[in-house]
Simulated assay, not measured.
Amino acid sequence: MATTSEKELKLNVEWCKGCGICVEFCPRNVLELKSGKINIKNIEACIKCGQCELRCPDYAIYLGGKEDGR
Rank of each mutant, 00 (worst) to 15 (best):
G36P: 03
M1K: 12
P57D: 07
L54M: 12
N29E: 14
I47L: 04
S35A: 15
C19P: 06
I47C: 04
G65K: 06
Y62C: 07
K10M: 14
Y62W: 15
G69Q: 12
E14A: 13
C56A: 04
P57A: 08
K7C: 13
E6Q: 15
T4H: 10
K10G: 09
I21D: 09
F25T: 12
I38E: 01
K7D: 08
I40N: 06
E14S: 13
V23Q: 06
G36F: 01
K7S: 09
G65R: 05
V13P: 06
Y59L: 13
P27Y: 07
E53Q: 15
C26D: 07
E32S: 12
N42Y: 08
V13I: 13
A60I: 00
G20A: 07
E14P: 05
M1P: 12
E32V: 11
G69P: 03
T3L: 15
Y59W: 13
P57K: 14
L9D: 02
C52D: 01
Y59M: 11
L54C: 07
G20C: 02
S35Y: 13
K7L: 15
K7W: 03
E8N: 12
L33A: 02
K17G: 04
E53G: 10
K41R: 12
I38W: 00
K37I: 00
Q51K: 10
C16E: 09
G36V: 01
C46G: 04
G20I: 03
V30D: 05
V30M: 02
N29M: 10
C16D: 08
D58Y: 12
G18K: 09
G36H: 04
G18L: 03
A2G: 14
N39P: 02
S35R: 14
K7E: 14
L9P: 01
E6A: 13
V13M: 06
K48I: 00
T4W: 12
R55I: 06
A60C: 08
G64W: 04
E67F: 07
G36L: 01
N42E: 11
R28H: 10
W15E: 14
G50R: 02
R70V: 09
V30T: 14
T4S: 13
V13R: 13
C16Y: 02
R70D: 11
C16W: 02
I40R: 06
K37D: 00
C22D: 05
E67Q: 14
G65S: 13
I38T: 05
P57I: 09
N29I: 11
M1Q: 10
D68Q: 14
L11V: 08
C19H: 15
C49L: 03
G20V: 04
Y62P: 00
V30K: 04
Y62L: 13
E6I: 01
G69C: 05
G20S: 07
D68C: 11
N12G: 08
I40D: 07
V23R: 07
D68A: 09
P27V: 10
